[in-house]
Amino acid sequence: MKFEEILEKLEKVTEELDNDNIPLERAMKLYEEGVKLSKLADEILSKAETRVRQLSESEN
């Protein structure tokens, strides 16, 4: 999943979670999902180190 997709999903999760009317069980589920998403995002951010490569003539 791409970072912006994760962020979009996380936004939805948080928005629903913010609704006091949802049952606790649902809130727990959402939170679990949110934590999973944020782990994915952290993974993307942590492995990220800028690398530069040249596209060689043959690949060209």
Binding site: L7, L10, E11, L17, A27, Y31, S38
Partner: peptide, 23 residues
Amino acid sequence: LIEGYGLLTEAMHNIMEERLNSA
């Protein structure tokens, strides 16, 4: 976007904590 992500996760944890406290 990274900054927004930070704020969002913080909000998520806070909401859940409040929710658990009231439960």
